[in-house]
């Protein structure tokens, strides 16, 4: 069985994706494996940073959710040290009507609205609750240190 038409079509549509600050390109020769870039949303501590992720569409996608992980170090209560993401639509709340694009936009939205009450990284969540400003400052610091800069990304293009 060749690659499902849906994956081909999604890939095609992602190629034309513009102005949303998300980018997904096929990694090597595995048509189910994507290199992803997400721009930190404006007004968040991640603004100005470009975060690298990897995404894989398992065999039974879209009946099962894509697997996604941050490769860029990020300070966020719902993302752990290995870049794993706690987001309902990637788990129990997945629906086959969602797509790669919607998943990436949801992750971007998660950056703009952290949820320390449902943490994956406990230490970060703790900090977020105790002293949100300090936590955000750390997040900004990490963004500066580890994420690519939006300006660099534009130069590349």
């Amino acid at each position: 069985m060749s690659l499902p038409k849906r994956i081909l079509k999604e890939t095609e549509r992602l190629r034309n994706e513009k102005d949303t600050g998300i980018k997904a390109t096929i990694h090597g020769d595995n048509l189910r494996y994507f290199d992803v870039e997400i721009n930190g949303p404006e007004g968040s501590p991640y603004e100005g940073g470009v975060f690298e992720l990897e995404l894989f569409l398992p065999e039974d996608y879209p009946m099962s959710p894509p697997k996604v992980r941050f490769l860029t170090k990020i300070y966020h209560p719902n993302i752990d040290r290995l870049g794993r993401i706690c987001l309902d639509i990637l788990k129990n709340n997945w629906s086959p009507a969602l797509q790669i694009r919607t998943v990436l936009l949801s992750i971007q939205a998660l950056l703009g609205a952290p949820n320390p009450d449902d943490p994956l990284a406990n230490d970060v969540a703790q900090k977020w609750k105790e002293d949100e400003n300090a936590a955000k400052a750390t997040a900004r610091q990490w963004t500066k240190e580890y994420a690519k800069k939006v300006s660099d990304q534009k130069e590349e293009a």
């Binding site: 990694h27 595995n30 990897e54 894989f56 398992p58 065999e59 992980r69």
Partner: peptide, 16 residues
């Protein structure tokens, strides 16, 4: 052809 799980996601599975 079945989906070929990339290294990193495979390692995450093993880790879990």
């Amino acid at each position: 052809m079945t989906a070929k799980v990339p290294r990193n996601f495979r390692l995450l599975e093993e880790l879990e």
